[in-house]
Write a protein that binds this DNA or RNA. Structure first.
Length: 170
DNA sequence: CAATAGATCATCT
DNA sequence: GATGATCTATTGC
């Protein structure tokens, strides 16, 4: 039996984890999804981040140590799913933008949370301890290529190339 | 095709 | 009271 990514996997900064987690397998409600697109968000060094101006009730989950779920509602209707990174009280998260389930490609943070059935009750779940929500190392044996891009839907921090996509090359 | 508008609400100022 | 780490439908070229 393979093990989920351990606690130490999430200890680095979000831009590193966002790349490293591509191709990993997300397990939720008997569904198995491959992570194919991510973005990184940090803290006071990242003007696009919810945590740019410090801790608030909404973003408190971003201050967890690495490996916890951070979810929030955007535009009154879409749930967005992140995984925290970095030590406790150092805000950082990997925002999941795209997944693949079997042959179905799902791009868009709101679409994928709806498809998987994630909800705010999954807030703060630990990805390496909670059996309901887990992430395993990828089983992609192919040679893959990762590209870096500007993040979507933000007004600041567009110079940071913190959106990452994995492409299978065969 | 590309551009725009509308939905809809918790959070922050 | 304004806004936003979005998505879809619709309009316009």
């Amino acid at each position: 039996m393979p093990e989920p990514h351990p606690r130490i996997f999430y200890a680095d900064t979000s831009d590193v984890i966002a790349k490293k987690i591509l191709g990993s397998t997300l397990i939720y409600k008997a569904q198995s999804a491959t992570i194919i697109e991510t973005e990184a968000y940090q803290g006071s060094n990242d003007p696009a981040s919810h945590a740019y101006r410090g801790k608030t009730p909404r973003n408190q989950a971003m201050f967890n140590e690495g490996g916890y779920a951070y979810l929030y509602l955007i535009y009154g209707m879409h749930l967005c799913f992140n995984i925290t990174t970095s030590p406790e009280n150092v805000p950082g998260s990997v925002f999941i933008r795209g997944i693949q389930i079997d042959d179905e490609i799902i791009i868009g943070p709101g679409r994928l949370t709806k498809r998987l059935g994630l909800s705010l009750s999954d807030q703060n779940r630990c990805l390496y301890q909670d059996p309901k929500l887990q992430i395993y190392p990828g089983l992609w044996a192919q040679k893959n290529q990762i590209t870096a891009h500007s993040r979507i839907g933000i007004k600041h921090g567009l110079d940071l190339k913190w959106r990452f996509k994995i492409h299978s090359t065969y």
